[in-house]
Computed example of a mutant assay.
Amino acid sequence: MTDNNVVLKTDLPLKRFISGKVRDTYDLGDYLLIVVTDRISAFDVVLPVGIPDKGRVLNLISAFWFEKTAKIIPNHVVAVIEDVKQLDEYIPEDQRFDYPAYLTGRSMIVKKVQRLPVECVVRGYLAGSGWSEYKKSQSVCGVPLPPGLRQSQMLPEIIFTPTTKGDDTHDLPMTYQEVEKTVGAALALKLKAISIALYAFARDYARHHDIIIADTKFEFGLDNGNLILIDEALTPDSSRFWDEKLYKVGEAQDSYDKQPVRDWLEASGWNKEPPGLALPPEVIESTRRRYVHAFEVLTGKLP
């Protein structure tokens, strides 16, 4: 079912913790309230239009994977907001307000933890910037690979290609040694092993539902010294999703994400600098269908 009330911004009467390209996060003391908007960005620019259903789909896909992977590693989820009345449990009485209905489905209460400054990128297929680098150096983010691999081919083994993680800066590639220097050798080893385990589990699950997860990225935090999974998990925004039925080695694949947006913007002649362009209705609807389809295929549910 389509949500015609596109949410581009939130302005709740709560202390704002951080706002990203898609998520608005509010500080509730020991907890955070994360609200996933329908904003969409391309080429690092937030566009002036939103994609209906996108926020709910992203939030519910993350919730789905957080539950599925909890046996591998704990995560930050405290509650997924299915009824705004749930918020009374986490918002002090003197700060409560008339909760907007749009919070339902697109928001969750999470633990406030110490975020680690490493984005854990994991790749199982040779695609995107990885393919471009491989053609030049036979490596991806400094990880050497065998000769003769083809575009979109499944890699002989899953590789860990971390990047920096900053609030206001572009993510930059990190070597494993740099990760060790940043978080320590023991924690670096855990990040790599758990990232690969999470990706392998999700990749195998998704293949049984006709979706290939080519690569993804995870973020982690420390909860009283214990490593936990945070942020989002295995969504079309943080991962490269392909249709297994259409998959062909040796060529670029169509993705279950904002590819129609990128394609239209590339064809428009836009210089990729702010302000972003408004999208035509057909591009918005095509993109909406991709997000919704990914959710339905993975979970067997309607968003």
Rank of each mutant, 00 (worst) to 15 (best):
M1P: 15
T2L: 15
N4W: 11
V6E: 11
V7R: 09
T10H: 04
T10W: 05
P13G: 11
L14I: 02
R16G: 09
T25K: 03
Y31T: 05
L32Q: 04
L33R: 08
I34Q: 06
I40T: 12
V46R: 10
P48V: 03
P48Q: 04
K54M: 05
G55S: 08
R56Y: 02
N59I: 01
A63I: 07
N75Q: 10
H76V: 01
A79I: 01
V80K: 05
D83R: 00
E89L: 14
Y90I: 04
E93N: 14
E93I: 14
D94S: 14
T104W: 00
G105D: 00
G105S: 04
M108C: 14
Q114S: 15
L116T: 12
V122R: 05
G124P: 10
E133D: 08
Y134A: 13
Y134W: 15
S139H: 02
G142T: 09
V143D: 09
P144N: 02
L145E: 11
F160D: 08
G166E: 13
D167E: 15
P173N: 09
T175P: 04
L187G: 07
K190L: 13
I196W: 03
A200Y: 10
D204Y: 12
R207F: 08
H209V: 11
I211S: 05
T216I: 08
G221E: 02
G225Q: 08
N226R: 13
N226H: 14
L227P: 06
L229P: 02
D231C: 10
E232Y: 00
L234Y: 09
R240F: 04
W242R: 03
K245R: 15
K248G: 04
E251D: 12
A252L: 05
A252W: 02
Y256D: 03
D257V: 13
Q259P: 07
Q259N: 08
P260R: 07
R262F: 06
D263R: 13
S268M: 11
N271M: 03
E273F: 10
G276T: 02
P280Q: 04
T287G: 01
T287S: 06
R289D: 14
R290F: 01
R290I: 01
Y291R: 01
E296K: 12
T299W: 00
T299H: 00
T299A: 00
L302A: 14
